[in-house]
């Protein structure tokens, strides 16, 4: 039997290239989770806003693509920090911090995702916008064409992860962030400006999600509904890799990407999205801490 290895390589490549996008969004989700103990259900819409910001900066205002990417990240970070400050912060005013706000945060997240999606709809309409970026001719790997956007995304994913790692482990500000993540009350006592750290965590996570949106724009076009399906895949990625683990997020994304592509290729093409969910549920049932994660402890 002559197994089609070149196709297998193609499927794996597709899985990895889309998986890193899931991973970048999962990076933000994991960061919020490890810092604030909440799962941000509106993160998909931040990703979508990032894509639209990138489109506006790059096409309407004419900035070059890398500049548009950075500007979009900054704008999304500001948006995220604003939302956190105005809405999410109030949920914790009742005392107990973010953990106890629990179900309220989840519901607020759902509500916020609807609000954000509809604000985007009111601004930009329902139409899907193409986001063409001229990066040159695509790579040719054997008989597979790989547009440069995919390669760029993978590079940026690794860069973001490394930058985040460096920031958290090697800088003083990162130390403050980690302290806040570990125990907010003690961090207060140590003189750390906890509210500002919380805003910073949120801003970073949202900026990262926006980067994913801008990077994926050329491959998939930009539409106000793009956030929701990405959210579910990114959650799957974060869970598989381990909530709270940064390399886990990227690794988890790649695993999810490969799983869904191999499933579609070899099991059944109709159920492509279900493979990601199955993986999510399996991991949650068998090893909720995921590949790299630490067992979730209740943090105040």
């Amino acid at each position: 039997m002559d197994f089609d290895f070149s196709s297998l390589f193609a499927f794996l490549l597709f899985g990895v290239t889309i998986g890193v996008v899931y991973g970048i969004v999962a990076l933000g989700i994991s960061l919020i989770y490890s810092g604030l103990d909440i799962v941000h259900f509106a993160h998909g819409e931040i990703y979508m806003f990032g894509a639209f910001f990138g489109l506006v900066f790059s096409h309407t205002m004419g900035f070059p693509y890398p500049v548009a990417l950075l500007l979009a990240m900054v704008c999304a970070a500001v948006l995220g920090m604003g939302i956190e400050r105005v809405f999410y912060r109030r949920l914790t005013k009742g005392g107990g911090g973010y953990t106890v706000a629990g179900m309220g945060m989840i519901i607020c997240g759902f509500g916020m995702s609807i609000v954000l999606m509809n604000i985007a709809f009111l601004i930009w309409g329902a139409a899907a916008e193409p986001f063409p970026v001229d990066l040159g001719m695509p790579f040719q790997l054997g008989d597979i064409t790989l547009p440069k956007s995919y390669a760029l995304t993978a590079v940026v994913a690794v860069l973001l992860m490394a930058a985040l790692h460096y920031f958290l482990k090697k800088t003083k500000l990162g130390l403050a962030v980690r302290a806040v993540a570990a125990n907010k009350d003690i961090a207060y006592l140590m003189g750390i400006n906890v509210p500002m750290m919380i805003s910073l965590i949120f801003g970073l996570a949202c900026g990262i999600a926006a980067a994913a949106g801008v990077l994926i724009g050329p491959m998939q076009s930009v539409q106000v509904e793009m956030g929701y399906l990405m959210l579910l895949k990114a959650f799957a990625a974060a869970v598989v890799g381990g909530f709270g683990s940064l390399p886990g997020a990227i690794a988890g994304g790649i695993v999810v990407g490969i799983a869904e592509n191999l499933g579609a290729a070899y099991i059944s093409p109709n159920h492509k999205d279900i493979y990601a969910f199955l993986l999510l549920i399996l991991v949650l049932m068998i090893k909720p801490s995921g590949l790299f994660g630490i067992v979730a402890r209740v943090k105040a």
Binding site: I18, Q223, A264, A265, P269
Partner: peptide, 13 residues
């Protein structure tokens, strides 16, 4: 799915 975004595996097959 209605809003599917990634067809590459289908195209490869």
């Amino acid at each position: 799915q209605e809003k599917e975004v990634d067809f590459r595996t289908h195209m490869q097959k």
